[in-house]
Amino acid sequence: MDKEQIYAVIKKHLLENVEDLQEADIDPQKSMKDYGANSLDIIEVVSCAMRELNIKIPRSELAEIKTIDELTNKFVANSSVES
């Protein structure tokens, strides 16, 4: 799965979990928090995306990630290892 597809999955779950967010507004260089996601929303987005992508990354490795793009890259790296 390439980066574009992984980003699409993250974006889909972000839109499902954050109120009043439009797809066109999402800038991957920003944090989910910038769009009003609280820590529980972020757990939901990350967990649902990992489940759909069939990847598993320890939370301790995700704690320092700041932006949606960094999260996508982390998923890309783990996705290629898994497949």
């Binding site: 598993k56 939370r59 301790s60």
Partner: peptide, 17 residues
């Protein structure tokens, strides 16, 4: 699960069993 020590209670909240 080869990096078992990297996981924690934060990783098993969701259950799809």
């Amino acid at each position: 699960m080869d990096n078992i020590l990297d996981y924690s209670l934060a990783d098993f909240q969701f259950n799809d069993n």
